[in-house]
């Protein structure tokens, strides 16, 4: 792997990071950390294998580490932006009309799968490798994530098990 090979993937890494992280600066931090780690670990990449899937896998690890870091700092909680979207009063209907706000409300693990499959067009097998989870888990997260997005954005009838995040 050389820097030029990496550079080809930067735009798509940025797109995924933007959708995953929300704002531009957090997303580019994610991309920067991913690229640096990829170069650090480049001896681990098998030439000929799918570099993009490998980069997504690294980005996923960086993202998860950032989430953990933020949990240690509650004032930086990931879902700070997402929470106010939920109406505070009892029995209030959840009203989120745009997909971007709905995405922010999704649990990060569901968001990642929905984006890798729906936006980045990875196969389930590729998403499974990128996230380090079994294909069955990819599918169940995808199905739940998409249904949750649908309910959030269309106000469709929520299944009883789908509770509004607190």
């Amino acid at each position: 792997m050389n820097p030029e090979q990496l550079a080809i993937h930067i735009p798509r890494l940025r797109r995924y990071a933007r959708a995953l992280a929300g704002d531009q600066s957090a997303a580019d931090d994610l991309v920067q950390d991913t690229l640096e780690r990829a170069l650090n670990k480049r001896h681990l990449w098998r030439p000929g294998s799918d570099l993009r899937a490998w980069l997504f896998a690294i980005m996923h690890n960086v993202f998860v580490n950032q989430l953990r870091g933020r949990q240690a700092h509650p004032e930086e909680a990931l879902d700070d932006d997402a929470l106010p979207a939920v109406a505070p009063s009892d029995g209030a209907r959840l009203e989120i009309t745009d997909l971007q706000s709905a995405l922010a409300v999704l649990p990060p693990e569901q968001r990642a799968v929905v984006l890798l499959v729906g936006l980045e067009q990875l196969s389930y097998a590729e998403a499974s490798r990128a996230l380090g989870i079994p294909i069955g888990t990819v599918m169940s997260r995808l199905f739940r994530g998409r249904e949750r997005l649908r309910i959030l954005t269309t106000g469709a009838q929520a299944a009883p098990t789908l509770k509004v995040v607190k």
Binding site: L6, P11, D28
Partner: peptide
């Protein structure tokens, strides 16, 4: 949803890559 994701985020592909990300590779 898939179409909306592309509508929301495909523009990122055409943005110039920030210097700090280009610097990493050079």
């Amino acid at each position: 949803q898939n179409a909306a994701l592309h509508a929301l985020f495909d523009a990122v592909l055409d943005e110039p890559v920030p210097t700090r990300l280009r610097q990493i590779e050079t």
